[in-house]
Amino acid sequence: MSGDGRPVVCFDLGGVVVRICRSWEEGCAAAGIEVREIERYRETHPERVKLVQTLDTGGIEPDAFYRAISDTLDGVYTPEEVRQVHHAWLLGEYPGVEELLTDLRERDGVRTACLSNTNHDHWVAMESYPTLQALEHRHASHLLGLRKPNESCFIAFERAMEASPGQIIFFDDTEENIEAARARGWRAELIDHTGDTAAQVMEHLRGVVV
């Protein structure tokens, strides 16, 4: 593949760059909404996963998604409550990541990018974050119409970046995505979302681009 020969340092967003809720209970707490009938929520996991995947690939509008989740839960939560939890899911940026991304972007021999499974409303909220503004290239599932860990998502990123698999260093907090990226030929490193994500990235980059 012809194109820019510089390596690409690529980041997942949630769990690497941006702190997020990890459960419905956390989301409700962040939104100030009482947790109700949690067993019903757990029973509907397969249906909700399909809806989230459809949202993440741009196949359903946010308002329709909120209504669909409410309907799936038999109205235990109203569409407005689902919207509030969804909007409260983002908890801000991890410390030190903005400085790391800014430093990488200022290096002539490196390109920075993100490849995130996300959706319109979360994307709009994150676009104002200094960390996202520090990224040179931004790619998201709802814009690509493709979602990790599908190989087609990684291929679409390569084409957009005009990069070969061997040029890409990728950081994600999900084992499934890491395994898929490695199978594609990317150098992929798993990040522990409970720890200092910036320090973990720096350690992996030491001797490579830092």
Rank of each mutant, 00 (worst) to 15 (best):
S2K: 04
G5N: 13
P7R: 06
P7D: 04
V8F: 10
V8W: 14
V8R: 03
V9S: 01
D12R: 11
L13M: 05
L13Q: 01
V16F: 12
V16A: 05
I20R: 13
S23Q: 03
E25H: 05
E26L: 08
G27V: 02
G27A: 07
C28K: 06
A30W: 02
G32T: 10
I33T: 10
I38S: 14
Y41P: 01
H45W: 13
P46Q: 10
P46R: 12
R48N: 05
V49H: 12
L51A: 03
V52K: 11
V52L: 15
G58D: 09
G58P: 08
G59I: 12
E61N: 03
Y66P: 01
R67E: 10
A68M: 09
A68F: 12
L73T: 04
L73N: 03
D74A: 15
T78M: 13
P79S: 04
P79V: 01
R83Y: 02
H86P: 03
A88T: 09
A88F: 12
W89P: 02
L91Y: 01
E93M: 08
E93G: 11
Y94G: 01
V97G: 04
E98A: 15
E98L: 11
L101A: 05
T102H: 12
L104D: 07
R105I: 00
R105A: 11
E106C: 07
R107S: 13
R107M: 15
A113F: 09
C114I: 02
L115P: 00
L115W: 14
N117P: 08
T118F: 01
T118N: 00
H122W: 09
W123Y: 10
M126T: 01
M126C: 04
E127S: 12
Y129V: 04
P130Y: 09
T131C: 14
L132W: 06
A140W: 05
S141R: 03
S141Y: 06
G145H: 05
L146D: 07
S152Q: 14
S152F: 00
C153L: 05
I155C: 09
A160I: 00
E162Y: 00
E162R: 11
E162G: 02
S164F: 00
P165F: 06
P165S: 08
G166S: 11
I168W: 00
F171N: 09
D173F: 07
E176I: 10
E179Q: 15
E179F: 05
A180M: 01
A181H: 07
A181F: 09
A183P: 00
G185A: 08
G185D: 08
A188K: 03
E189H: 14
L190E: 07
L190R: 13
H193E: 15
G195C: 12
D196F: 10
D196Y: 08
A198R: 05
Q200A: 11
V201T: 12
E203R: 12
H204E: 10
L205N: 09
V208H: 12
V209Y: 05
